[in-house]
């Protein structure tokens, strides 16, 4: 595997486009012999960057059903920076169990590991691998490959940052990190009081963040702002959520 890692990293270093990233993640999936691999980041101008191998229908189902509110991967990985084995997440609620069943039926796999990435200027991205196997097999897989996967996750991110830099900057709404945090926690279903506590700010300050985000998004109220932020892809959705390259919600498909 060591040499394959070297080769993947070499390819990532040379990658110039999202299509390059997509072909590398397909190779990664095949080399690691797993069902799926996904990388997802949203740039500060609201453009989604990512690539992955999930079935495309699953994305639409996820967005249509507002699964951001129930996906334990989102809740367990947002603004974290340690690798997360899906087995360690809280799947105990009825909703989470139903979601898991649907994800498995959609071909996501019954096992997964997500690696949250913290980049420059409060950047947050998520790299996920998923597979169908027993708990024991997955434990062995993650134990032997965690370090390589962390490394690859960050190299995908480096490439994505490089590609984003080369793009022509467009004037799109840009939310500050605190605004994104506030909207993301609200989208996950937390109450305002809880969000204020989690961000260690007063509810008054939170109201100001939400108001400014609402204005930037051109939304009529908070609920609308949260919905817009999700559909326009200003919020990173879970490992179980993503489609293939160029086919993110809110972005025109390019047939990858």
């Amino acid at each position: 595997m060591g040499q394959n890692i070297q080769s993947l990293i070499g390819q990532l270093d040379q990658a110039d486009t999202l299509d390059d990233l997509q072909s590398i993640i397909l190779t990664l999936r095949d080399q690691f012999r797993i069902d799926h691999a996904v990388y997802h980041w949203i740039s500060s101008d609201g453009e989604q960057f990512g690539c992955g191998t999930y079935p495309t229908d699953w994305v639409q189902t996820y967005v249509d059903n507002d699964y951001l509110r129930v996906d334990p991967v989102v809740i367990g990985c947002y603004q974290r920076f340690h690798p997360v084995n899906w087995k360690r997440l809280d799947w105990s609620s009825k909703q989470a169990r139903a979601f898991q069943k649907e994800a498995i039926a959609a071909g996501v796999g019954n096992q997964g590991m997500s690696i949250p990435i913290r980049g420059p200027n409060g950047q947050y991205a998520l790299f996920t691998v998923s597979h169908t196997c027993s708990d024991e097999e997955w434990e062995v897989f993650t134990e032997s490959h965690q370090r390589d996967l962390i490394l690859l996750a960050h190299y995908f991110n480096k490439s994505a940052l490089k590609i984003a830099k080369g793009r022509k900057p467009e004037i799109v709404k840009s939310l500050s990190r605190r605004e994104t945090d506030a909207l993301t926690y609200l989208a996950m279903g937390y109450g305002r009081g809880q969000v204020a506590e989690m961000l260690s700010i007063s509810e008054h300050t939170l109201r100001v963040y939400i108001e400014s985000a609402r204005f930037k998004l051109g939304a009529t109220n908070t609920t609308h702002a949260v919905a817009k932020a999700i559909t326009e892809g200003l919020i990173v959705i879970g490992g179980a959520a993503l489609g293939t390259s160029g086919d993110w919600p809110g972005k025109a498909p390019n047939g990858a």
């Binding site: 340690h82 360690r88 997440l89 809280d90 799947w91 105990s92 279903g189 937390y190 109450g191 809880q194």
Partner: peptide, 15 residues
């Protein structure tokens, strides 16, 4: 360690 990073029922987080 597992108690912190593994599954632990959340008491206050359900809206």
């Amino acid at each position: 360690f597992l108690k912190s990073f593994g599954f632990e029922p959340r008491l206050q987080l359900v809206a």
